[in-house]
Design a protein around this nucleic acid. Structure first.
Lengths: 258, 258
DNA sequence: GAGTCGCTGCTGGTCTGACCAGATCGGCGG
DNA sequence: CCGCCGATCTGGTCAGACCAGCAGCGACTC
């Protein structure tokens, strides 16, 4: 008897058992980054399903960035550290399909960046300050280069801050949002011919944030994040969204330039 | 000639061609929700790959919630409307993977809930206020019931607020964080014998938030979120985390009870 | 003529067994 | 002792089969 082809609607799919199981074991911490899954053929025995089903499961786990399998690796599929990559991917799809708008992204970024700066001011080490200074020097050197390159350096500044904040969740959430914003911005605002002014303003803003953070002034660092994002994007959003952004600025006692 | 088993590292995987192609055609709008993909066997011909590869591709597209294939559906896999479901899934994994501590979750929740309340105060409709009142009445009725049930009603209150805020991303992020907090809390604080006091405090807090939101006072609603989360959890975290939480409260001009 | 039965052909879900390319490792010959 | 070679492992791919169930259509019955 070949016990094949049984009715398999919805969640009874063979490969789902593997996906759910592995996912749960990663969530629970039983499977840690760097661990190895058994080889495909061993998973076949372990779950009692065919290799094609095992492979479907592995492809899904790979698309979730939970696992990566390399060809001819006798050690089996590698369990990856949890990253924001899949979120970024989905965020990208959502934004490119206009389901999620730039204003929404910017608003969320105001909140996340503000908290990042606040925590960074309280927890930063001297090494973080050095890294920030080095990044600022690099950005000054990129003033006349492509906006894409400048944008990456800008992102890096925020990633150092996220590091300094010492808050893994805020770091991951922020990463996803910032990259989505950058991606969208390069299609929207890029044609503005005052790119250099934009860049100069970025550098000024980073300098101010750096000062606040090295002084340990969390409130100021937080306010700066909200104010500068408002200044950047207020002209590119509708009235209602601008109102929300203004409210986010004044939430922490910031001011909106007239 | 069986042209099989060629070297296929990285992006040269057979199923990737299908995934990338379909993904791009969905992002570009060529494939719209409600459209149908060709049947598996037709995709085999169209891409010149084996059915197992086609199926791997379909499983990945399904895990991205871009497509759903039903058994025995002669019309072929259905193209789905783009939703935020996959983000929620990844977010949930991110937060539930034990690497994130309760203090971190609470801190992020302070930020997200505050923004939610702020936006809800600006955008809520009369219907939202009605829903909030109904929920508050229900919670009063659950005062003497299990904490789990009460917790669910509590969650629902925040979900109504997230709805009122009208910000899809904030809603998603908030959902993930709040659920994770609730899950963790039921193992940590549950043994406190002052459960009823906790519940009463929750209800008082919700009442205050309701008043601020119906008055359109965003700053107050935001401050309330931060202050009450601080009050709830300050005693259950270490000194450093409490300091961060205090900073988050005072970031928006709130006060920390002595 | 209208209604029902059953066949045929389609679908997706699953399994089996095969082959390829490359890596790893043990053993054999120099 | 060193170096080469093959057995054996891995993941990637393919081909072909079977199952369960639905749809359409033709034939048979009333």
């Amino acid at each position: 008897m070949t016990d094949t082809g049984r009715t398999a609607t919805a969640e009874h799919r063979a490969y789902r058992r593997v996906v759910d199981d592995v996912e749960a074991r990663i969530a629970s911490g039983e499977l840690r980054p760097g661990d190895r899954l058994p080889s495909e053929r061993e998973l076949v025995d372990r779950y009692g399903i065919a290799r094609s089903s095992v492979r479907e499961a592995l492809r899904v786990l790979e698309s979730l960035e939970l696992v990566r399998s390399a060809p001819r690796d006798p050690r089996g599929p590698l369990v990856l550290p949890i990253t924001s990559a899949p979120i970024r991917r989905s965020l990208g799809l959502l934004t490119s399909s206009r389901t999620i708008s730039l204003p929404q992204l910017v608003q969320l970024r105001m909140v996340i960046d503000a908290s990042t700066n606040l925590m960074a001011a309280l927890r930063r080490t001297p090494e973080h300050l050095v890294a920030l200074e080095r990044n600022m020097a690099r950005m000054r050197g990129l003033l006349h280069h492509s906006y894409a390159e400048f944008g990456r350096a800008d992102l890096e500044f925020h990633e150092i801050l996220a590091d300094a904040a010492g808050h893994e969740l805020v770091r991951l959430y922020g990463e996803a949002v910032r990259e989505a914003v950058l991606e969208l911005i390069q299609q929207t605002i890029l044609d503005a011919d005052d790119q250099e002014a934009h860049k100069l303003r970025s550098i000024r803003h980073h300098t101010a944030v750096f000062d606040a953070i090295s002084a340990g002034d969390g409130r100021a660092a937080s306010r700066l994040a909200r104010e500068s994002l408002y200044q950047y994007y207020a002209d590119h959003v509708g009235d209602e969204d601008r109102e929300i952004m203004a409210a986010l600025v004044s939430e922490c006692g910031g001011r909106v330039d007239p």
